[in-house]
Design a protein around this nucleic acid. Sequence first.
DNA 1: AGTCAAAGTGCAACCGGTTGCAAAGTGACT
DNA 2: AGTCACTTTGCAACCGGTTGCACTTTGACT
Lengths: 344, 344
Amino acid sequence: MSVTIRDIAKIAGVSPSTVSRCLNDSTVISEKTKKRIKQIAEELGFEFNANARSLSTSKTGTVGIIYPENYTELDDNLYFNSLHNQLRDSLEREDLDLIAAFPVNKYTNKSNIQKLITCKKVDGLIIVHSKMDTKTFDLLNKSKIPYVFLHHFPEICKEEDVDVVYTDHFIGGYLATEHLINMGHKKIICVSTMGDEDEFKLRTEGYKKALLDYNIEYDDKLLFYGDHSYPSGYRIVYKNFEVFKGVSAVFAQTDLMAFGIMDALREKNIKVPNDMAIVGYNDIELCTCVKPNLTTIHQPREEIAHLTCERLIDLMNAKKPKKSKKIIIQPRLIIRDSCGANKI
Amino acid sequence: MSVTIRDIAKIAGVSPSTVSRCLNDSTVISEKTKKRIKQIAEELGFEFNANARSLSTSKTGTVGIIYPENYTELDDNLYFNSLHNQLRDSLEREDLDLIAAFPVNKYTNKSNIQKLITCKKVDGLIIVHSKMDTKTFDLLNKSKIPYVFLHHFPEICKEEDVDVVYTDHFIGGYLATEHLINMGHKKIICVSTMGDEDEFKLRTEGYKKALLDYNIEYDDKLLFYGDHSYPSGYRIVYKNFEVFKGVSAVFAQTDLMAFGIMDALREKNIKVPNDMAIVGYNDIELCTCVKPNLTTIHQPREEIAHLTCERLIDLMNAKKPKKSKKIIIQPRLIIRDSCGANKI
DNA sequence: AGTCAAAGTGCAACCGGTTGCAAAGTGACT
DNA sequence: AGTCACTTTGCAACCGGTTGCACTTTGACT
């Protein structure tokens, strides 16, 4: 069917191994033959058969990414979608393909992680998922396939032992709160989320620390819990309107909750930012598709994606196992209109 | 490193071919040996090496999907993201992996379509992209790799000659407009988009046909062009406010433009839906994250994804080339609050 | 002319599966 | 015991690359 190196070899009157070496730019081949062979390959429209190549080299040229099962339901999948595109872009630079999967195939009930590893379909793994059983984790380590955890890492391993890149949610929470304080607010509601995701706890910690640093007493009546989503933000306002009436600012730990809060406040005739300042978290594209534009904490996706891929590629190319490394990325405050800063 | 069928063969005292046949459930093997071999394989934690398998069978167990280059910029990538997840889900059912790519690698400048095909990385291709040069198209056909066009198909081929699945945008435009007419509106603005994308032209045609059917004269002063995005919808209201003041309804051909229009109208103190009814298009998740909830045209993603994959898998499994087929999916009107129907 | 290192190329095995075909085994029946 | 059909298994080639090692060629130097 398609052209093989043996075809080329026959035509050029050399052995297949020579052809292979030429097309792989081996240094032991003379420039003259190299040029000649490449020429013929070009004319014949030769392309390597990736499978044959993978079989003999044990390199596939593709990396896998594992997302949390609840990813599609996750309201901030908007953030993940955009991160995903950045990751793909970073990998494209190295001509690597990307296969995305959930931890388990929900139809066959088999572990996709295991499948990708043991079937040798990927050279490396990016794991955006914090729950992992010991069996899979062992398999992962035994397989010698490099991996880096993105955003989360499983409880079953020590942070020092694995490669992980994440953003500093403590600082993020701090920055958001500090900004509101600097704008003159003293009573600031914080809307976090339930669940065992550490990042939200950290955002809350940052919030508390900022209050402390600026001598504002922390009041746990001002702390609420949503579920990431727009409706949950919306409902929290309605359910706790008395509390909202008594404050002048809100730090919502996802942008979508901030949107819900803003819409509910509008219905209650509270003007943002004049009567209430709002800061969100994530900086999804829609922040500028909402009036007033949302002030928020930006997680630099390009940087996250770039550093994650860089690290993974490093590991994939390393001859010897490398010492694991932790990469922490600093979030940034993006000032728009919802916090009132632009009106001054 | 990992367990091979030869390892199993040695332990079981049979030949590798027998092991292969057992694990592939060949009918010529006795149940007894099959059971024994499978048992051993299980114990050893055997998994097929996908590359070796692909090499000999020419089946990779993965399909590729090609997105338009401008996909990440496309404002309705929200729609595509959700469609993508549905596609992945449909493929997961058959244990197929999915590699997503753009038509060309923007760093190496090489054709990704060509790469996926000629390197034998995929068994089939879903193509969401209408521009394709003759060379690639020829390659595609010569390669015998089955493909289906999703939503668009290239101009260089005849619709009858290729497999394509898309939604009926004419009907979508018609449904949206008809609904507004039924709500008593006679002057209806239509916001389409520039560019050569047929689907938007068709939506506009549907709009015109509905007007015609209900004896409302078409007025081209009521037709505007945005660029899919929220800001463009927003701006159109500001720039043409006199026109908007004279009508009672708007059909926006993307949800995001509808959002922009709604926000601009709010700032102009025009109440939706009381003073102005609005219908969008796509039914992105955010339609219910906006006040009032957006009435819109839903493109059934599950159905689209399912039919696309079903067709592709059909083609991949076919022994002989099948006659090409066109699958057209009907959009649905989703009535929410922005059109005023719920207030009556 | 003879020696020898360096450069260039080919042989053959290997990666880990699949599969057509031949051979061996089984059991029923004459 | 011999024949025959059918079931079960093994041999060996193949998929299309890579690579260690051995061999040949080349040219500089004594």
